[in-house]
């Protein structure tokens, strides 16, 4: 049972990692495509709000 559960956990982690990588590569592709066309015009700090902190409410 323990061996089976370790296999299940490894399987879950593997699938989750694959899906996360797919999502990340998809984002990377979108960002590359959109920002590649703008040739560096789009550089700069994301948002001044980021430097001040996030909202107080949490999960």
């Amino acid at each position: 049972m323990l061996i089976e559960s370790i296999k299940t956990a490894a399987y879950v982690y593997f699938i989750a990692a694959i899906v996360a990588i797919i999502v990340a590569l998809y984002i990377k592709g979108v960002v590359f495509y959109l920002h590649g066309r703008k040739k560096g015009k789009n550089k700069g700090v994301l948002s001044p709000v980021a430097l001040k902190g996030a909202p107080e409410v949490k999960a």
Binding site: A16, A20, A24, I27, V31, A50, A54, P55
Partner: peptide, 20 residues
């Protein structure tokens, strides 16, 4: 509503890697 997804779009690979 509280999350700015732009932070993920800014660093997708590193963010997802850390998260996993």
């Amino acid at each position: 509503v509280l999350c700015d997804i732009g932070y993920v779009l800014a660093f997708p690979l590193t963010s997802m890697f850390i998260a996993i």
